[in-house]
């Protein structure tokens, strides 16, 4: 079972890596310490991918949302909200499992051997609500309400929290630009501390940033129960062995709720099921007569 799970995991990681490479393929940026300035930056990428990463070809949806909400001219981001609704309604948190570069980094960090991996702890369920607070407070309310004299709000999530921005943008750009090194202060140090904590936690907790902090995961999780792509369990086939719940890194029990807001659709449960009772509504993995369930 474990070998099969690992094989499936690496297949997913290859797709994650390929997507990360495709959306960050402005490689000259890494050599010159500059960022891509082309027209593709009009478009958002589905995952958390800092647009100040030297290789980034698209815009981070969370950064873009704060930029528009914080703009004195708009105050609400219909374009980005619509994009997130479109992607979320089609795929839900499939994006987290397969198309998010920061998710891949956490996945790989969790593969580092550690004597005691923590699956859950006291307050885990409550802490998972924190990402919704982060979304509402730091991504929407603060950029909307805490504005300067011109009416412009700052991207407070990016500024105060986002470790992906530090890793993908902050570190490479500061390393490659001498002028930036002279401008470093407490904020850079704070963000690096958060990044180090995230990296450390990722080694023994599966995807701590996605579970507790990520506002993008919070948005997609709302759409998980209704998204077009989802999982279904054939209750007649299910033997209640619990293999699916045991293998889930997000601590979801697909038998209780196959489209739980925390499910990132990594497919581990599908592979772990000994009777192939887990499939999708489109029929991938289930026979025609089983789709009705």
């Amino acid at each position: 079972m474990d070998k099969k799970h690992n094989r499936n995991d690496w297949k997913r990681h290859k797709i994650q890596a390929l997507w990360a490479l495709l959306t960050n393929s402005y490689l000259i940026g890494f050599a010159q310490g500059k960022i891509y300035k082309g027209k593709l930056k009009n478009l958002c990428v589905p995952g958390l991918n800092c647009y100040s990463c030297p290789g980034a070809l698209g815009a981070c949806p969370i950064g873009a949302m704060q930029a528009v909400i914080g703009n004195w001219n708009f105050k609400f981001a219909f374009y980005v909200a619509g994009f997130l609704m479109f992607v979320g309604a089609l795929a839900g948190r499939f994006v987290c499992g397969w198309l998010c570069p920061f998710g891949l980094i956490q996945d790989l960090l969790h593969k580092i051997p550690f004597p005691k991996k923590v699956k859950t702890f006291y307050g885990d369920k409550l802490l998972r609500k924190l990402k919704y607070v982060v979304l509402v407070v730091f991504v929407i309310l603060l950029p909307m309400c805490l504005v300067d004299v011109l009416g412009q709000g700052a991207p407070y999530f990016c500024k105060l929290i986002c470790p992906a921005g530090t890793l993908e943008g902050g570190l490479p750009l500061v390393l490659l630009n001498q002028s930036m090194r002279g401008a470093l202060g407490w904020l850079y140090a704070w963000k690096n501390v958060l990044l180090i904590i995230t990296i450390f936690l990722s080694v023994f907790i599966y995807r701590p940033f996605c579970k507790y902090i990520c506002p993008l995961g919070a948005v997609y999780s709302v759409f998980n129960p209704i998204s077009v792509f989802g999982y279904r369990v054939d209750k007649e086939k299910c033997i209640g062995c619990g293999a699916c719940a045991k293998v889930c890194g997000m601590q979801v029990d697909p038998v209780k709720n196959a489209n739980h807001p925390e499910c990132i659709r990594c497919g581990a449960c599908k592979k772990a099921c000994p009777v192939k009772a887990i499939g999708t509504p489109m029929g991938w993995g289930l026979r025609k007569e089983e789709k009705v369930n």
Binding site: I35, Y51, S52, L187
Partner: peptide
């Protein structure tokens, strides 16, 4: 997105 986001990088 085409300008380096100083807030994002800290």
């Amino acid at each position: 997105a085409i300008n380096i986001c100083m807030e994002c990088i800290g």
